[in-house]
């Protein structure tokens, strides 16, 4: 190329989208949403033998406002879903989500009354990791896969997210339960009482209004 010949070796020509994605993918800041056993494997991934720092993702931050990758490690139960959604909404764009382990991805062995059968029913997920719990190598592979995805699809303004306006998870299980057997959802949030057939997703404003019931002072 003539332009590169003209600029010499020290200057590199690329697209803005590519350079932004390249920066983002190599400095992922994970937010470890570690609830159960997978959290220990997540710690092992960060510890000496597996060392997630080799992939530029070692800066675990427990404050969602400083992170761009949420790793949901472990099962999420009904009392935890509002917390999970609230933390997800607090994270700044662009952000990605890894669902680590069988329980987070599908409920795993816990097909019981309280365990959510896969967080993707209520939250967009980018990479799923199988295993109970997954080995640290699998988590590293997921990070590599996510980096690949960011490089392929990423745009500097994050416009690739705008197209994802439909829920991406499986069909809500609530529709399979007869209406007369359903009971009101737990949690002090009025908007989510019962899934009405036909309205699969609520708006964010509704959700935030509902989540405001979660503040600490109500409990004491």
């Amino acid at each position: 190329m003539a332009l590169e010949d003209f600029l010499g070796d020290n200057i590199f020509v690329t697209k803005l989208n590519d350079i932004a994605s390249w920066c983002r993918k190599n400095s992922l800041w994970p937010m470890p949403f570690a609830t159960a056993c997978c959290g220990i494997e997540l710690m092992a991934t960060g510890a000496s033998k597996h060392d997630i720092a080799r992939f530029g993702a070692e800066a675990f931050r427990f404050s969602p406002r400083q992170c761009d990758l949420m790793i949901v490690a472990g099962r999420v139960v009904m009392k935890m879903v509002p917390v999970l959604q609230r933390i997800w909404l607090q994270m700044p764009e662009p952000k990605w989500c890894i669902s680590m382990g069988a329980c987070a991805s599908s409920g795993g062995v816990f097909d019981t009354y309280s365990v959510v059968q896969g967080i993707d029913r209520f939250l967009p997920v980018d990479v799923y990791i199988p295993g109970c719990p997954p080995r640290p190598e699998q988590l590293l592979q997921a990070v590599i896969d996510l980096q690949d995805k960011i490089q392929r699809t990423g745009t500097v303004l994050g416009s690739e997210f705008d197209r994802r306006i439909r829920p991406e998870g499986p069909r809500p299980l609530a529709l399979e339960v007869p209406q007369e057997l359903q009971i009101v959802a737990p949690g002090n949030y009025a908007s989510s009482n019962r899934l009405v057939p036909g309205s699969c997703h609520n708006s964010q404003a509704n959700l935030l209004q509902g989540l405001s019931g979660l503040k600490g002072e109500n409990l004491s």
Binding site: G74, M80, V109, T112, Y113, S114, V115, L219, S220
Partner: peptide
């Protein structure tokens, strides 16, 4: 302090 637990209640004993 008021501990609040049950954020990982998964129904082990029911299983």
């Amino acid at each position: 302090s008021i501990p609040d637990i049950g954020f990982l209640h998964s129904g082990f004993e029911k299983l």
